[in-house]
Design a protein around this nucleic acid. Structure first.
Lengths: 212, 212, 212, 212
DNA sequence: AGCTAAACGAGACGGTACGTCTGGTCTTCCA
DNA sequence: TGGAAGACCAGACGTACCGTCTCGTTTAGCT
């Protein structure tokens, strides 16, 4: 990954004291800690500043507001998502679902994710930031999984790079896990994961058969 | 539908002036209007009271806070969801997906739904209220759809009433639509709906075959 | 004393259920109790109603507001002031000063008297009510004292009934005691009373000599 | 005068933006204006803030509440009291009585003084603040007047500095004027002042004779 | 080594909204 | 029809955060 947080990049440098990298790290860490303790709605900028041992001005010099700060604070957690090759499409899907579910179990993710998405429905730049920092992270896994399955011969080679099916699969997997974890508020356990995987594989097989 | 809003039920009442039913309606209507104009995060209790021509105390007498008020205000919108019999499981699924997507397109629903779900991750009573007022509304449609498909012979008769598959299907449909509409922020158009339906039918068919 | 509180008198009786005299007494008693416990500024109409086991409506039907209620509640305490004949002007003065000081030591009087006087500076009807219910009670004692002293020959017979000196003496005695008790917040003890009495007698004697 | 308002002294200050002195002045001025227009009981903190062009928080950062604010706002008026040497004790007394009466005629003083004294009966720190800011201002005049009269030979030199008679004279003068102006609500005119002065001089002379 | 310019902490600033409390008024039902 | 109960509107309360603005103080990089 290239440029690091905060994304509010600035023109190179003219003179003066450079910004403290230590402050950035402390702020993001403090934000995650505050999310865990207080949740999204009770997290305040002043509290984050205090926890980070930093002045409020320092926060606002880097982030436009709570939304942007929290997106950056949790975005790094989504960087951990990976897709180790488990040998079959079914196992790959199960793996990524489990990883994603584990991420959503973390209290900071749980309270922050839905909140920033809710905010983004009325804030286009925020939506873009979320897409870049968080959603793209997950979508990459779907593309990677398909490519790998096609290499294995489990799926037919597709025509173009973005077939629309990728988008669908992404929405279905991510949406189902989020809904299970946050809306239904029931555990993403082994059985549920297996069932979801079976449903997807069956559906994909049928779709492949149709396409013949 | 039986018991009306607000859900914060009260003891029957002996003496004193009864609460104004007109106020209830005006408040919920004002809340929806404020959601459309301002969105969740800029909606304030004072503003809702002013719009409704009501004192703030009257709001707080009925609802504990913004969360509860908004849940009740949008809950009624979910009452409109229905499952008209379109003759086949595929058409029924397409119908319900379209209905749900249309509901999520409404600005009041879009801005409120994710927000209250985010809040509910740290507020168990709120989660229960959402489950009763909103989620159950949708889940009902899944059960109804399965029963109808079994009656038609499109699906095998299941053993018990809650197979777990119902839950899965519910999370997949609702989650996928929400994710498409709010996270990916792309239109739930005819093609996407058809693809989702195909995926589900394929997956269900495979699952039925497995069970043989 | 003739007509009792509340002063907001009403035409005798037309029909229907008569007002409860018991309620009046309970309300005034509750007001005094609330004054003792809470003081003027934290006393509320709702609290008085609750203490008296009465609805707020009943309070407002009888008194225009907190000011009027409190005036009536403490006025009765001023009815207790008397001027027993102690045989000399000096002793009579000392007696009345002591009585008045004792009254001002009571917490309900202390907190209420200055407050209603403060209110009365912007409320003419209230001032009139205070004058009738409270001030006149005290002024009467000055007149009585003078008459008695003149009968004893301690003071020369004055021309008219209201010489202006009565008013002065009244303001001096009442003002001095109030100021000592509430502003200086120091005890009205025997020595202070003796000194005040001496000052007054000396002043009166000089005035009488002047008038010769 | 040395230390300025607000009396709520603060630690010298190390970092941070310094408090605006302009705000202090604007607030106190606004408070006096509000007292004149609305009187004590209808004066609100929010209104004062608006008049002063200041946020409510700025008021509360400096004053604990309405009582403290009003004391400081009117205290400055009592600083104007002086005791110009008019050549005789009688004239000095008349002068100070007239000044004090003129002060009590001002609407802001009239409505505020009794009110804060009433509040102070249940609030020891407030009483102390009033004593420092207001009462001491007046008491000083009594001491000064006595010293001057003794220098002139009008009064015998007293033994100690605080004879108790000073306190008495102070309570009598201040109390009588306040009572006349606010309770009796009658004008402190030339005749009344002359009579009061005569009474005091007569009383003091008699006391001096006694002491021989 | 000194200069410069930005970043830093601290905290006051004008605001907005909060959730509560009180003041008076108005229904509704009971006695 | 008076009274208890309590809901009603209006608006002030004092607090919490917001995001901005002074302050005086570092702290880097460029002379």
């Amino acid at each position: 990954m290239c440029s690091t947080l905060p994304r509010g990049a600035r023109t190179p440098r003219t003179g003066g004291r450079p910004r403290s990298a230590r402050a950035d790290a402390a702020i993001l860490e403090a934000t995650r800690a505050a999310l865990v303790e207080l949740g999204w709605s009770k997290l305040t900028m002043g509290d984050v500043a205090t926890r980070a041992g930093v002045a409020k001005t320092t926060l606002y010099r880097r982030w436009a507001g709570k939304n942007e700060l929290v997106v950056d604070a949790v975005a790094v957690l989504f960087d951990e998502l990976e897709l180790p090759d488990r040998g079959s499409l079914a196992d790959d899907i199960e793996g990524v679902v489990r990883q994603f579910a584990a991420l959503l179990e973390r209290p900071e993710t749980k309270t922050a994710l839905m909140a920033v998405i809710a905010e983004s429905t009325r804030d286009e730049p925020l939506r873009e930031r979320i897409r870049e920092s968080i959603v793209a992270r997950q979508k990459r896994l779907v593309l990677e999984g398909r490519r790998r399955a096609q290499a294995r011969g489990e799926l037919p080679a597709s025509a173009g790079p973005a077939t629309g099916t990728d988008d669908l699969i992404f929405d279905v997997i991510a949406g189902a896990v989020v809904h299970r974890a946050l809306v239904s508020a029931e555990p993403v356990d082994a059985q549920w994961v297996r069932r979801l995987t079976a449903l997807l594989l069956g559906g994909l097989a049928a779709a492949a058969a149709d396409a013949l």
